[in-house]
Measured scan of single mutants.
Amino acid sequence: IRLYEREDYRGQMIEFTEDCSCLQDRFRFNEIHSLNVLEGSWVLYELSNYRGRQYLLMPGDYRRYQDWGATNARVGSLRRV
């Protein structure tokens, strides 16, 4: 999964292949505005340590956080399923 700091895949990008319990420890931002799921399925959590609202993401492109059903861009952790 590739996470981007801004909409439309702009700004700083980070790629994950494994679970991350605290996004801010690995990426200086806690807001993700766009992403690409390259393979497999992922769950994004609004808070760190896999807490808060959850969003199940299938392979595909998500140009804005609204595309995955979120009401804001906050992402605290993520897990591959």
Rank of each mutant, 00 (worst) to 15 (best):
E31R: 10
Y50T: 00
Q66D: 04
L57D: 00
Y50S: 01
G60E: 15
N72P: 11
R26W: 12
Q24C: 08
G11V: 00
N49Q: 10
Y9W: 11
E31P: 15
L56E: 08
Q54T: 11
D67N: 15
N49S: 05
G76T: 05
L56Q: 07
D25L: 12
R6P: 00
V43E: 15
Q54G: 03
L57H: 12
Y62W: 11
G69E: 15
L38S: 06
G52M: 01
D61L: 05
V43C: 15
E31L: 12
Q12W: 03
L23N: 07
D25I: 07
R79M: 13
R64K: 02
F29H: 06
I14R: 12
I14G: 05
S34E: 00
M13W: 04
Y9I: 14
L23H: 00
M13E: 06
Y65D: 12
T17H: 02
V37E: 00
D19H: 08
L35Y: 02
G52P: 01
I14P: 00
Y55V: 13
L56D: 15
Y55H: 08
A73G: 10
S48I: 04
D61C: 03
R26P: 13
N36P: 00
E5V: 12
Y45T: 06
R79H: 02
L78C: 15
R63C: 14
D8R: 11
W68K: 15
Y45C: 02
N72A: 06
T71N: 12
G11W: 00
Q24S: 09
V81A: 05
W42T: 01
Y55A: 11
Q12P: 09
L56M: 15
I32V: 14
M13S: 12
A70N: 14
L38P: 10
G52T: 00
E46V: 02
E39Y: 03
Y9C: 15
D25N: 03
Q24K: 13
E7F: 04
S77W: 00
S34D: 00
S77T: 00
E5D: 09
E7G: 05
I32K: 02
Y45F: 02
R28T: 09
Y65E: 15
S77K: 01
L56I: 14
Y4W: 03
Q54H: 04
R28Q: 14
F27N: 05
N36L: 06
G11E: 06
E15K: 15
L23I: 05
R74H: 06
D19N: 06
G40Y: 05
D61G: 10
S48H: 01
S77Y: 00
E15G: 06
R53D: 14
L38G: 10
D61N: 09
Y62D: 00
Q24Y: 07
P59A: 13
R6K: 08
P59E: 09
E7L: 08
R63E: 13
Q54D: 10
R28A: 09
Q12A: 07
S77E: 00
N72I: 15
R10P: 00
R63W: 11
E31G: 11
D61R: 05
D25W: 05
G60N: 03
L78W: 09
R79L: 05
R2V: 04
F16V: 11
D67A: 05
V37S: 15
C22R: 07
E7Y: 01
Q24V: 05
E5P: 11
L38A: 06
Q54A: 04
S77D: 00
E46D: 07
M13L: 10
G11Y: 00
L78G: 01
N72Y: 15
P59Q: 12
Y45M: 01
R64L: 14
Y55R: 10
E15Q: 04
L56Y: 03
Y4A: 01
Y50K: 02
D67H: 08
G11D: 13
Q54R: 06
L47D: 15
V43Y: 02
D61I: 02
L38N: 15
L57K: 03
L44D: 00
R26K: 10
E31I: 15
F27R: 04
D25T: 03
W42V: 14
L44W: 01
M13H: 10
V37G: 02
Y55S: 14
L56T: 14
L57C: 08
G40N: 02
L44F: 08
D67S: 09
E31M: 11
A73K: 15
D67C: 04
D25S: 04
F16Q: 11
A70P: 12
E18T: 08
W42S: 00
D19S: 04
E7D: 12
S48D: 15
Y62M: 14
G11M: 02
D19P: 09
G52N: 01
R79N: 02
G40M: 04
P59M: 07
I14Q: 08
G60K: 11
Q12H: 11
S41W: 03
N49M: 10
G60A: 07
E7T: 14
F16K: 04
G11H: 01
N30L: 04
I32E: 03
Y4S: 02
L47C: 14
R10C: 12
F16G: 11
G40E: 13
G69F: 09
R51D: 08
G11P: 01
L56W: 10
Q66I: 14
Y4R: 02
Y65A: 05
R26V: 09
W42D: 00
A70K: 14
D19K: 04
Q54W: 01
V81I: 07
N30P: 07
Y50W: 02
Q12S: 09
G52A: 01
Q66A: 10
L3H: 00
D19I: 02
T17W: 06
I32Q: 02
S48V: 03
I1T: 02
N36I: 07
Q66C: 06
G69V: 14
A70I: 11
D67M: 12
V43D: 09
L38R: 11
R26F: 02
D19C: 06
G69Q: 13
Y50N: 10
F29E: 12
L78T: 03
N30G: 12
R53V: 06
N30I: 15
Q66H: 14
R63D: 14
V43N: 03
L3T: 02
R64T: 13
N49H: 15
W68T: 15
N72W: 15
Y9N: 15
P59L: 06
E15R: 06
R6Q: 06
Y9E: 13
R6F: 02
G11S: 05
Y50L: 02
E39P: 00
N49R: 05
G69H: 11
D19A: 04
R64Q: 08
E7W: 12
E7V: 07
C20S: 09
G11I: 00
R53C: 04
F29W: 11
H33M: 12
V75K: 01
V37P: 15
T17G: 10
E7C: 02
L78F: 15
M13K: 13
F27T: 05
F27Q: 10
F29N: 06
M13C: 03
D25H: 09
Y45H: 04
E15I: 08
G40A: 09
D25P: 13
G40C: 07
R74Y: 05
I14T: 08
R51E: 15
Q54M: 02
E5A: 06
V37R: 00
C20V: 06
D67F: 06
A73I: 01
S21P: 02
L23C: 08
Y45V: 00
E18N: 14
L78E: 00
Y45L: 01
R79Q: 12
L57G: 04
S41D: 09
E18I: 06
Q66K: 15
G40P: 06
D8L: 11
R53M: 07
R64S: 08
R28F: 03
V43Q: 15
E5C: 03
L35G: 11
F16R: 13
D61S: 08
E46S: 05
Y65F: 03
R51V: 11
M58K: 13
G69R: 15
G52C: 01
M58P: 15
M58T: 14
L78P: 01
C22S: 10
Y62Q: 02
D67I: 03
L47I: 03
C22L: 07
S21L: 07
R51T: 12
A73S: 08
L35N: 03
A73N: 12
E18Y: 05
R53N: 15
L35Q: 09
V43G: 08
T17L: 09
D19L: 03
R10M: 08
G69S: 08
Y9S: 15
F27A: 06
Y65I: 12
L38Y: 04
R63T: 11
